[in-house]
């Protein structure tokens, strides 16, 4: 591990030449980047560009073929369990239990992450107030409207105050108003020092990120603030930037 990594505690995610090969196919091809504490980092790319594979490595779920990575100060190759303890994860598929009540879901996930009963209770009360969910507390999660569920799933993913939370297309199919309320929850989380790593297919959401990386065929082809990227590509929106870059793809598998 390089000195750079050891001395930089402000960097919550560090990827150095991270690579993952499946047989002859290089899904993630030598990517390097850093994400600072409290940052909203947008991770964009076309279907099949390698986003999910990269994210799985950073979450300690898949071991890199080559390269190094540190998440929350832990090595993603040798300290996967410590990595998992320090992060939150919200998958694109709704992952709370429909047949458990709202408070039961929170207690279950809080417990899995090793939180004390008392802490869970206090924080649950707090969360119900913030989300305006006090009337929903005893309802089955399956009975909630989709927008509520997504907000709850996000809140559960950061309930144990992880250093960084990974969000995989958190707003797919959500109505436009809830989609925006969701982003306000993200802003609120970062104001409390949580780092956010997010993938999305909504290009307007890319604009809400502090910095955005765009993957093409396993490589990071661009990485900067939305403002700088638009300048660099002489584009009026992130949608244009994305189209210019994704057009470079030569992978048939897109």
């Amino acid at each position: 591990m390089s000195n750079l990594i050891q001395h930089n505690s402000n960097k919550v995610i560090i990827a150095e030449n991270l690579t993952k090969r499946f047989g002859h196919f290089t899904a993630v091809d030598n990517i390097s980047f850093e994400v600072s504490r409290g940052e909203i980092f947008g991770f964009l790319g076309a279907n099949g560009a390698g986003k999910t594979t990269a994210m799985r490595m950073l979450c300690g779920l898949s071991i890199p073929t080559a390269g190094k990575g540190m998440v929350a100060g832990y090595d993603i190759e040798t300290q996967t369990e410590l990595v998992k303890k320090s992060i939150g994860y919200m998958s694109q598929k709704f992952s709370l239990y429909d047949d458990l009540k709202v408070w039961e879901n929170i207690e279950l996930f809080g417990g899995i992450y090793g939180m004390k009963d008392k802490e869970i209770k206090v924080k649950t009360d707090e969360l119900m107030k913030v989300l305006n969910f006090e009337n929903e507390r005893d309802k089955l999660v399956g009975s909630l409207p989709l927008g509520f569920k997504q907000k709850l799933a996000f809140s559960v993913s950061i309930f144990h105050t992880p250093q960084v939370v990974f969000l995989d297309e958190p707003t797919g199919g959500v109505d436009p108003i809830t989609r925006r309320q969701f982003w306000e929850l993200i802003y609120d989380a970062t104001s409390r020092g949580i780092t956010v790593f997010v993938t999305t297919h909504y290009m307007d959401e890319a604009e809400y990120c502090n910095r955005v990386s765009i993957m093409v065929d396993g490589k990071i082809e661009a990485l900067d603030s939305p403002k700088e990227l638009k300048k660099q590509f002489n584009a009026s929106s992130m949608d244009e930037v994305f189209h210019q870059l994704a057009r470079k793809s030569t992978r048939v598998d897109s």
Binding site: A46, N47, Q92, H201, F242, A246
Partner: peptide, 10 residues
């Protein structure tokens, strides 16, 4: 087109 990236959607 749900879950499909903007380029493939177009």
């Amino acid at each position: 087109t749900t879950g499909v990236d903007p380029v493939s959607r177009k």
